[in-house]
């Protein structure tokens, strides 16, 4: 499971532990995590709040350094911020003073690449997420769902090999969330991007993923993995299919087993 040399691996973690030292007690966020993602895979990490899911994402992005263990991204050991990734957080963190298009082009400017070369790609992404006509609008003129679409376009502008998403739909209403799940699936299917999708919604994870990793409460460790072999493209009504519901139920049982869910009525 942890063979690093294979070029079929998009990113991986080996015996990764993370302990945050605080002024009071040290926080044990991750405990000897080992896993790897195949190139092009849609991998979800599912776990209760505060189980270190977000920490895992920050480690893979090279924005934090693990206490011990190794992480790789595109066959290279992660040391410092990674160039070939896109990140989407729960908050869209768009820059209020830039239009949609300028926000999407921000990574291009940070990397000192010619902005002009990326405008067609940006317009194409804007079109794909249904925001044509809103390129020159400012974030405060958009709804939460539209803002998050812009944030996704910004993450994808350089067609990164890896897309890291940290509860990207967590702040949205239920309907918008379903729409964005559909949109994300379409976007992912049109590209060769590997996705690490962090969520605490079982439905979201099962609907979107090729594989779901379930984590234990803090200190976060991998509890079990579930391959999701439902054919794509998946429709929203697929969520009512018996095999979909079976997967959801299996995962829910795991949470009951861990004591995260308590079904005493």
């Amino acid at each position: 499971m942890t063979e690093i040399s294979s070029s079929n691996v998009a990113f991986s973690a080996t015996d990764t532990t993370m302990v945050y030292s605080t002024t009071s007690d040290p926080v044990h966020a991750l405990d000897r995590i080992s896993f790897s993602a195949t190139r092009g895979e849609f991998l979800s990490v599912l776990g209760p709040s505060g189980c270190g899911k977000s920490t895992l994402l920050m480690l893979l992005a090279g924005l934090r350094t693990p206490s011990s263990g190794t992480l790789t991204m595109n066959d290279k050991v992660v040391r410092g911020p990674q160039p070939d990734i896109g990140i989407v957080f729960q908050q869209d963190v768009l820059l209020d003073w830039r239009t949609c298009l300028q926000n999407i082009l921000l990574p291009i400017q940070f990397r000192r690449l010619p902005k002009k070369d990326y405008i067609p790609a940006a317009m194409d992404l804007i079109h794909q997420v249904g925001l044509t006509g809103f390129e020159d609008r400012y974030p405060y003129e958009l709804s939460g769902g539209m803002r998050q679409r812009v944030a996704i376009c910004r993450a994808l502008i350089q067609s990164p090999q890896t897309l890291l998403m940290d509860e990207p739909f967590g702040a949205l209403d239920a309907l918008t969330r379903e729409q964005l799940m559909l949109d994300l699936q379409t976007l992912w299917m049109s590209q060769t991007t590997t996705v690490l999708f962090i969520t605490h919604s079982i439905h979201e994870a099962v609907y979107l993923s090729d594989r779901v990793i379930v984590m234990t409460p803090r200190p976060g460790a991998i509890f079990r993995e579930f391959p999701i072999d439902i054919a794509r493209p998946r429709t929203l009504s697929d969520m009512n299919r018996p095999d979909f519901l079976e997967r959801v139920e299996e995962i829910r049982e795991v949470f009951t087993e861990m004591g995260v869910l308590n079904e005493q009525v």
Binding site: L63, P81, Q82, F89, P107, F110
Partner: peptide, 13 residues
């Protein structure tokens, strides 16, 4: 916000 500075660093700024 912390997320914004993290994002900016990750974009290579």
């Amino acid at each position: 916000p912390q997320e914004l500075s993290d994002l900016a660093v990750s974009m290579g700024g």
